[in-house]
Design a protein around this nucleic acid. Structure first.
Lengths: 336, 336
DNA sequence: CTGAAAGCGCTAACAA
DNA sequence: TTGTTAGCGCTTTCAG
């Protein structure tokens, strides 16, 4: 064994006076069938520990055509819903003894397809596809490559899919608002945000309209402001509505945290009592979006700068100790 | 070539009437040195496309001892700072043509070590270790296994590390508070949250005290409430302080969003004018933590349930189309 | 300019 | 109960 490289089963075999196959059997738990002597097994495990052995999974994968990798393709990490999915996925993978490979693809078709091919190159054992744009194409590639796969959030109608019950959720939310607001709300309730080309948005809008119907209100089309998921779009959309009405509506269902940010941004310019006249409901949960009307400075750490710096070290094969400090940014409040 | 399994360079070689080595050279860009005929190259690429070829990266890795995988070990995905790191890491990996493997380990020593061995088994080319508890041990393992690695957030003093400038950041934050509050604040400013066993917390506390010193205030020890990073701990810690003072302090620096949640939770029981008497500052940024004092219901999608369901499909090797809907949870506001 | 052949570390028949 | 051996798909000398 070369000092620089990892020990192999052959190294162990020689040191433990056994054969490679015995070592292999002992070390990968597949030794039920082989009925190996307890002493031999112990001896082998002992040597393995001494040598700091860990199996070369690539080699095993090549042999068995099972990589032990489970993949997940998702739009972004920095979104609390997707982040929860990643977290849960990682834990589930661990329970199964598999290694998670989570790739975010920015809702970009090409990145989705590229990443999929990449994962196939690694012979992923299974794949979870979250919120994908190119769902059909991804499905076909998986099918042809024989990769078990399942869609989450954005379903594919040619494969197993798991989604939130968007319609029922929004319906319940809308009814709760109507209930709290009472008769005063009249017909003046709006739905803000989302993209009607996307499955989830469409379903949520359906739920919104179902609730109106159920409350005996007319499902007027222009009560839906599907301006997209971005913060700025919903800011302007709400601003526009405010302009048309001359004030806030009586009720507002907001589709996603991003849109809620835009909403808050717009509200921040309004007097308290005006805000109190409107009943809000939001799709998506955020612990901070609780009671918070405090003006304060905040610190934002520079994630990308730090990563960039870190990669410089990796690229340079740096091995010497060092400590790079990145100054975080001070974000002052709108002096209000 | 077996219909069920991926095509290999041998399949291409036969179809293109060339040798495996030529195919290999053409397909992996290493054909500068080989001076291959343009027609042969084209022919090979053509066949490869027809067959839907994608290289078996495991095999290549076995041969070259370079897996193309870059690993990242981090505490959790569902935290906005870590999520930003993951996102940035993924993008940086893509630029380098590498495949990111991001493993979250819940700040658990054993999980950290396990995951590291796992990654080593996959012959990771490089590793980024974020916020690790067992930093020294991880470093030693990496060193012995010859894996280039770098620490982020929690430094290791025996390897390259990148961290935020915790002290400078908190110092600036604290001074901003003192500045805004003016003389009235007296000595009544507190630091809430964090774990003084952790590098980052210690540095932030240092920054806090440096600011006090600079402002000519005594750095009284018990102004630091290092109750940990959890929401509930900071809730109780603040509750306790409130009890002792009979009211809120004049200034409060809050160490992390989790602690800010606890703070908000406590504040929600206080009258508006009391809250207005205290000046707040928070380490970590959250867009929602802007101006928000609206009581409203919210929807929380059931991430774990969905993942569990999805894995049932994977486990069962399901391939038939289906659509499982998981009802999200309606979270009603504290009726206030 | 191209092909033959060895071998990366492991598993799984098949022998012994 | 254990050892021998033939590959998994790819890269890479070394010959042609």
């Amino acid at each position: 064994m070369n000092d620089l490289s990892k020990p192999t089963i052959y190294d162990i075999a020689t040191k433990a006076a056994a054969s490679p196959s015995t070592v292999s059997a002992v070390l990968n738990g597949s030794w039920k069938k082989r009925r190996i002597g307890a002493e031999t097994a112990d001896r082998i495990r002992q040597v393995a520990r001494e040598l700091g052995y860990s199996a070369n999974i690539q080699a095993r994968a090549l042999r068995t055509t099972k990589s032990g990798i489970v993949g997940m393709i998702l739009p972004q990490h920095d979104n609390s819903f997707f982040a929860s999915l990643s977290q849960a996925f990682t834990e589930a993978s661990r329970e199964r003894g598999a290694m998670p490979a989570i790739i975010s693809t920015r809702r970009d078709r090409d990145q989705e397809v590229d990443s999929l091919w990449n994962l196939i190159g690694y012979s992923v054992d299974a794949l979870m596809i979250v919120g994908a744009k190119a769902h059909d194409e991804l499905h076909e590639i998986c099918r042809d490559a024989n990769v078990p796969h399942v869609f989450v959030d954005q379903p594919c109608n040619a494969a197993p899919s798991v989604v939130s019950d968007n319609a029922a959720g929004v319906e319940e939310l809308t009814l709760a608002i109507l209930d709290r607001a009472g008769a005063e709300i009249g017909e003046e309730i709006y739905f803000l945000g989302g993209d009607s080309h996307l499955y989830a948005s469409r379903k949520r809008i359906e739920g919104f309209q179902a609730a109106l119907r159920q409350a005996g209100l007319p499902a007027i089309e222009d009560r839906v402001l599907a301006c997209g998921y971005s913060r700025t779009a919903s800011f302007y959309s709400l601003q526009d509505l405010y302009g048309r009405l001359g004030r806030l509506p009586k009720g507002l269902i907001i589709n996603s945290m991003g849109c809620f940010e835009g909403t808050l941004e717009f509200l921040s310019e309004l007097p308290e009592q005006e805000i109190a006249m409107c009943h809000f409901g939001v799709w998506d949960y955020d612990p901070i979006a609780a009671l918070c009307r405090i003006s304060m400075p905040m610190i934002r750490q520079k994630a990308e700068v730090m990563i960039r710096k870190a990669f410089v070290h990796l690229d340079a094969r740096d091995t010497a100790p060092s400590l790079t400090k990145i100054k975080p940014e001070l974000i002052l409040p709108r002096t209000l």
